[in-house]
Design a protein around this nucleic acid. Structure first.
Lengths: 205, 205
DNA sequence: TACAATTCGTTATTAATTTCACGATTTATT
DNA sequence: AATAAATCGTGAAATTAATAACGAATTGTA
């Protein structure tokens, strides 16, 4: 039994999104090479990735859009819905609250926290903003799995500690400094300026 | 002559940021293992990465913080300053404008564009907001290299076309759909919901 | 000065990932 | 029915990346 690689999972997420868009356009079939073009990959890579999930393609035709999407989603998400808690409702936090991809049937932003009294108890895009003091209790109550850090870096560690205490198992950190957490908690750092430098380096090659 | 791998470059950017923080704390020496801890890597990986840039370490001591930072920066950025143009001054755009890492001596956000008349000609964090119509001319004038797409997905392709026409060679795309560009333009997509699903998958393992 | 301790730098090894090559399957066409 | 064309699926090869192993250099200490 081969184990599935993290890279394959990440690409599968791109495939799923592409397939959703194709479904909206009523495309019911798609070939590996076209899916590769859309997602910035290669046809062989697409077929190899998909082969981890089973034999879903039809030779000479390609893949059925709906079926492929279901297979990938079921494998990766099973029946789960991902519940997210957001910390920090500044500009970035608001952008995240308004982000269309965060209120679908597979992913729900369920609670936002901020320490500014004037933001608390307001609602943005259907999500209520609570005071940080209530976060541990509320996150446990709503069973969130993933947390987003969108506070200034001075407060990021403090927020990370709250997240760990609440039982969150994954964190996206937008603050430009690393936070320390127990090793059973997975942290993904997104640092805007490092992304920029990285692209700059790529364009220099 | 070995060529430097993209992964090494990306980690080197993490090292540079860590070294900057250490310098602020007046730490003038650092070992590979401590740098590894800070950046979430391993000591061997750190030494191996750094060895691409030359012999800068001192056995038994470690690296001189300042010297190592200079070596890495010079190699990756040479004497360049990266100039950025931002499209879209909504919540996300404002968050980017206020992001501290975008006004340093190595990276400058030089212009922002929006089509809303009421935003135009205002200034956020020292950056002036211009009408989109002037973007091609202005980007050429200020010699920006990298563009950031922070507009809704309906407008992302249109903005990408402007960027290509302006001569930008790298794009960070925050809109949740891929844009098509000539293959000499490098695009990095940052899709919040895919990041979340990716973390969720990691935590499920 | 000799020896131990520490940390870098580098070659060798192993592991992971991507690409290649090609057989198998299905549909269309003559 | 035979052949051609298109596309999937996959084992093998090639590439890339990470880890391990260890020598070399430096400092501290007896």
């Amino acid at each position: 039994m081969k184990t599935i690689s993290p890279k394959t999972i990440d690409r599968a997420l791109l495939y799923i999104r592409a397939l959703e868009n194709l479904l909206k356009k009523k495309r019911d079939k798609i070939s590996s090479s076209e899916l590769a073009d859309i997602t910035g990959s290669s046809d062989v890579q697409v077929r190899k990735d998909i082969s981890f999930f089973g034999k879903v393609g039809i030779p000479r035709i390609g893949y059925e859009t709906k079926k492929l999407k279901d297979v990938l989603e079921n494998f990766i998400l099973q029946d789960n819905i991902v519940h997210i808690a957001l910390f920090g409702v500044g500009n970035l936090g608001k952008a995240i609250l308004k982000y269309p991809g965060f209120q679908t049937d597979k992913i729900k932003l369920v609670a936002a926290f901020d320490k500014a009294k004037n933001k608390v108890l307001k609602e943005v895009n259907g999500v209520k903003i609570y005071p940080v003091e209530q976060s541990v209790r509320l996150i446990k109550k709503v069973h969130a799995e993933i947390g987003i850090i969108a506070v200034p870096s001075e407060n990021s560690q403090e927020v990370a500690d709250i997240m760990v205490n609440s039982g969150l198992k994954g964190i996206v950190n937008f603050a430009p400094n690393r936070v320390s957490v127990p090793k059973n908690v997975y942290v993904k750092d997104i640092d805007f300026s490092i992304e920029i430098f990285s692209i700059f380096s790529h364009t220099q090659l």
